[in-house]
């Protein structure tokens, strides 16, 4: 049991501060020698990132070329910003970009907090058996592919006789064509995402919650704090750093709305709101064969992602919150 006590921690032991201050005066080669074992541990990972992440990055040059496969990567002609020009003047692009931004926004405000809320609720559940059963149950959907999720959605929301269509009809009094109505598209997508990912998302928060020191609750109870107050003053502050790190990490991939899910839910009647950057790149790259153009769109997405992730990290630092580094 003693092994587990590391979770109890006073914020930042000052030993670390001393460590950072000292090496500045020491020459680099001495420091490298001093940390040779750490460097050795680091090496395989660094090689991995160089080989599998950075070497393929020459691929982005494609965005500035007119790629002809026969000529190969290096001999295809440079065309400068032609593809970016086409992107920003395309009649489709503003709509596609807007659709992506709206979904990203909904993902942040609705999908992101849900696993936290559910994890907190599970944490309050005192019946261990029930807790474990529910935990296992809600994480099952993570294993079903989007194709299955889509077909189940089609079944439940079928026009006319889908069980949930009937429910909506009862509630609103209207016969809705949920699967094709553009107004229903985003709610459906968010609902699917929640269903599939909330349970899985709770794992990391539950792990963090389990690490909260029990004596803090004891102290709070002695002070007469209600459960709600304990939640607010003990539990939430304890997992705040986890939440912030998760938020920063996810901000970078905000514009990744997922390809398959959206692709499967798109139809002729809702395409106006359904098409997002991920599906657009697919249509252009795989179906239309415009590799260079779709690379340009991907690059644009990457730049925005980089700005977002480094930006939020900077903000977190500024407000003295946990950061990635």
């Amino acid at each position: 049991m003693a092994v587990d006590t590391y979770e109890v921690k006073a914020p930042a032991p000052d030993g670390e501060v001393r460590e950072t201050a000292r090496p500045r005066k020491v020459p680099l080669q001495v420091r490298l020698l001093q940390y040779r074992w750490l460097m050795l541990l680091l090496l395989p990972g660094v090689i991995y990132f160089v080989v599998f992440k950075y070497m393929p990055m020459y691929g982005v040059t494609l965005a500035f070329k007119d790629y002809v496969p026969v000529l190969g990567w290096s001999d295809s002609p440079w065309v400068g910003l032609k593809h970016f020009d086409r992107m920003f003047t395309s009649p489709d692009f503003p709509r596609v970009f807007w659709n992506t931004v709206v979904l990203a926004f909904l993902n942040v405000v609705i999908v992101f907090p849900m696993p936290i809320i559910v994890a907190l609720m599970l944490n309050e559940l005192r019946v261990t058996v029930l807790k474990r059963m529910i935990q296992t149950a809600i994480y099952i959907p993570h294993f079903l592919s989007w194709a299955i999720v889509a077909s189940i959605t089609f079944l439940l929301f079928a026009y006319g006789d889908g069980p949930l269509t009937l429910l909506v009809e009862r509630l609103t009094g209207d016969t809705e064509s949920i699967l094709t109505d553009p107004a229903w598209f985003r709610p459906l997508i968010i609902l699917q995402t929640l269903w599939k990912s909330v349970g899985w998302g709770t794992i990391i928060y539950l792990a963090a919650l389990a690490g909260v020191d029990a004596s803090l609750y004891e102290a709070a109870r002695i002070d007469g704090a209600t459960r709600m107050r304990q939640l607010w003053h003990v539990t939430l502050p304890a997992i705040r750093s986890t939440i912030i790190v998760m938020l920063i990490l996810q901000s970078g991939t905000l514009l990744d709305t997922g390809f398959e899910q959206i692709y499967l839910m798109t139809n002729s009647l809702n395409r106006g709101v359904a098409e997002v950057l991920d599906t657009y790149t697919y249509y252009m790259g795989i179906e239309q064969g415009a590799f260079s153009y779709s690379t340009a769109v991907g690059l644009f997405k990457g730049v925005i992602g980089a700005v977002l992730i480094f930006g939020t990290n900077f903000l977190a630092k500024k407000f003295n919150q946990s950061t990635l580094f």
Partner: peptide, 13 residues
């Protein structure tokens, strides 16, 4: 006859 194939074939692929 997808665009990718046609472009490739006509470029001598």
């Amino acid at each position: 006859k997808t665009s990718a194939f046609v472009q490739n074939a006509e470029a001598g692929g």
